[in-house]
């Protein structure tokens, strides 16, 4: 009788199961898809010149307007249901942000302050300042209020929650902006795609920056001026992005024509959202790394 020694098998390593939805992954997926879809629509309609039936074109335009919302539902909201610790109140945040935008933000900017009417002919620095102090601050402040007083502080369990709720508020706000744009402008699909991308970029960028301030204020030991500072930066991002995007796309007057270059708008918006995601991700990583180091050093002591 013989027997062999059973092979030594290492016991399976216990994995730390992450109980929350990974917001960065969802955000990056949504962003990439929006950029790609808007880019494809722009190229197809701008350069290939496809001609769709009016009804189909209208449907496509509406689809583009709802694109951020649809992608958010697919990649964020539904994903939330598949994790052990789903975030609650995201729908409420989105809805309240959208309602606030429709009821307060957009009317206040477009009807009362009307920065486009009196800033369009001003010099670039004045335009940046003007949009920062009007459209930018209104938009970011409304989203902040929604997140601060509706979602948080009870919903904020981890830093990433701040991102999730701020992005939800951003999606609500940008969807309203998109809808108001497509309803009030008989724009072609390529231009709607650019506008959707623009709204997405400024809202995502602003909300990410604002989320960092909220997260740090809630989870870090920071100066109480950090959160207002991030609001200022978020408003400034809007103030920069709105005039610069149109400025890049604006035509230069020649002897026979002045043809605009909307492709620059596409590149600019993509750049803005990419840089914003990269920077804020970097900041989040830095502070989490700092906290890990300080915690580990604290435990050794």
């Amino acid at each position: 009788m013989s027997f062999s020694t059973p092979p030594l098998i290492a016991p399976p390593k216990e994995e730390a199961i992450y109980p929350y939805r990974r917001v960065w992954r969802s955000l990056i997926q949504e962003t990439i898809l929006i950029v790609v879809i808007c880019g494809v629509v722009f190229v197809v309609f701008q350069y290939i010149g496809i001609d769709l039936p009016a009804l189909v074109e209208r449907g496509l335009i509406l689809l583009l307007a709802f694109l951020p919302l649809i992608l958010w539902f697919l990649f964020s909201r539904f994903a939330e249901t598949r994790v052990p610790e789903p975030r609650s109140g995201l729908n409420t945040t989105l809805m309240l942000s959208a309602l606030s935008a429709a009821a307060i933000g957009v009317p206040l900017v477009n009807t009362v302050v009307q920065p486009a009417e009196w800033l369009s002919l001003e010099a670039a620095p004045v335009r940046i300042l003007g949009y920062t102090l009007t459209a930018g601050i209104v938009q970011e402040f409304i989203k902040f209020l929604v997140v601060r007083y509706v979602s948080g502080p009870r919903a904020l369990r981890i830093r990433d929650d701040s991102i999730a709720y701020c992005i939800a508020a951003a999606v609500g706000y940008m969807t309203v902006l998109n809808l108001i744009y497509v309803v009030n402008h008989a724009a072609t699909p390529d231009m709607v795609a650019l506008r959707v991308l623009h709204h997405m970029s400024i809202n995502v960028a602003g909300s990410l920056i604002m989320s960092y301030g909220i997260a740090q204020t809630w989870f870090g030991r920071v100066n109480p001026l950090l959160m207002p500072l991030t609001l200022l930066v978020a408003a400034l991002i809007n103030g920069l992005a709105i005039p610069l995007r149109s400025g890049f796309a604006n035509a230069s007057l020649g002897l026979t024509s002045a043809i605009a270059s909307p492709i620059f708008s596409l590149a600019f918006s993509t750049g803005i959202v990419t840089v914003a995601i990269g920077l804020v991700l970097f900041f989040y990583n830095v502070v989490e790394e700092q906290e890990r180091i300080s915690r580990e050093s604290g435990s050794r002591l």
């Binding site: 970011e140 402040f141 809630w218 001026l225 959160m227 609001l231």
Partner: peptide
């Protein structure tokens, strides 16, 4: 916390 309260206040005032 006090920091959160002051932050919120400063944010509102700034806006």
């Amino acid at each position: 916390t006090l920091t959160q309260r002051w932050s919120t206040l400063f944010t509102v005032l700034l806006a």
